[in-house]
Simulated scan of single mutants.
Amino acid sequence: MSDISSTRTTDTIVRFSAPFALPDLVGEMPPAGDYKIEQDEEPIEGLSWLAYCRVATYIHLPSIAEGNRLRRIVRIEPTALADLLAATNATPDGLAS
């Protein structure tokens, strides 16, 4: 078994220029703004080099500008997120701290 057994998390801020729909939020459209996207990855064991596999992707609601008001984290499929980013011309805005 590998010595590396922990999950790593990558945070990115994405800027949506218009309201958008999320697959699991029926009837709710988050407004335009900056949103934190969190991706969890686990190391792939048995390789001769270090590689990771994404195991979960989340979007934090509401937007960063709205502060911590009723903050929740919604799981989103990576393909659904990619489609959403392409459809809305959202832009990554660097890494969250």
Score class of each variant (00 low, 15 high):
Ile64Thr: 15
Ala96Thr: 06
Asn68Gly: 06
Thr91Asn: 09
Glu42Asp: 06
Thr57Tyr: 04
Glu38Asn: 03
Asp3Phe: 14
Leu95Ala: 15
Leu85Cys: 07
Thr79Asp: 12
Ser97Gly: 15
Ala87Asp: 01
Ala82Asn: 07
Pro23Glu: 08
Pro30Cys: 06
Glu41Ala: 03
Pro78Glu: 05
Arg8Asn: 13
Asp83Arg: 04
Ala96Ser: 09
Leu81Asp: 05
Glu41Ser: 05
Asp34Glu: 12
Thr12Asn: 07
Ile13Cys: 09
His60Val: 13
Tyr58Arg: 00
Leu85His: 08
Leu61Pro: 11
Pro31Lys: 09
Ile59His: 01
Arg75Trp: 13
Asp3Ala: 13
Val55Thr: 03
Asn89Glu: 04
Ile13Glu: 09
Arg69Trp: 12
Ser63Phe: 14
Arg71Cys: 09
Ala51Glu: 10
Ala80Tyr: 02
Ile59Tyr: 00
Arg15Gln: 14
Pro23Ala: 11
Leu95Glu: 07
Lys36His: 04
Asp24Tyr: 13
Pro19Glu: 02
Leu22Asp: 09
Val74Met: 08
Met29Phe: 12
Ala96His: 10
Ala51Thr: 00
Leu85Met: 06
Asp11Met: 07
Leu25Cys: 11
Glu42Ala: 10
Pro78Tyr: 10
Ser6Phe: 13
Thr88Val: 02
Glu66Gly: 08
Ser5His: 10
Ala86Trp: 12
Ile44Met: 00
Thr7Pro: 08
Glu66Arg: 13
Val14Pro: 04
Ala65Leu: 02
Asp3Glu: 10
Cys53Tyr: 15
His60Glu: 14
Gln39Thr: 06
Gly46Tyr: 01
Pro19Leu: 08
Thr88Met: 13
Ala96Gly: 06
Tyr35Gly: 02
Thr79Val: 04
Ile73Asn: 09
Cys53Ala: 13
Gly33Met: 00
Ser48Asn: 09
Pro19Lys: 01
Thr10Gly: 06
Ala87Leu: 00
Leu22Tyr: 07
Leu25Phe: 08
Ile73Lys: 09
Ala65Tyr: 04
Leu22Met: 10
Leu50Cys: 03
Glu77His: 07
Val14Gln: 06
Leu61Gly: 02
Ile64His: 07
Pro23Phe: 06
Thr9Ala: 05
Asp83Tyr: 03
Ser5Val: 14
Glu28Gly: 04
Leu50Met: 03
Gly94Gln: 11
Ile64Asn: 06
Pro30Val: 08
Ala21Thr: 15
Leu22Glu: 05
Leu50Asp: 04
Met29Cys: 13
Ser48Lys: 06
Ile4Val: 13
Ile37Asp: 03
Val74Ile: 08
Ile4Asp: 11
Ala86Ser: 14
Leu95Gln: 14
Pro92Trp: 07
Tyr52Lys: 05
Glu28Leu: 02
Ala90Arg: 01
Pro31Gly: 02
Ala18Pro: 02
Glu45Tyr: 11
Ala21Gln: 05
Leu22Cys: 05
Ile37Met: 10
Thr91Ala: 12
Ser6His: 11
Ser2Val: 15
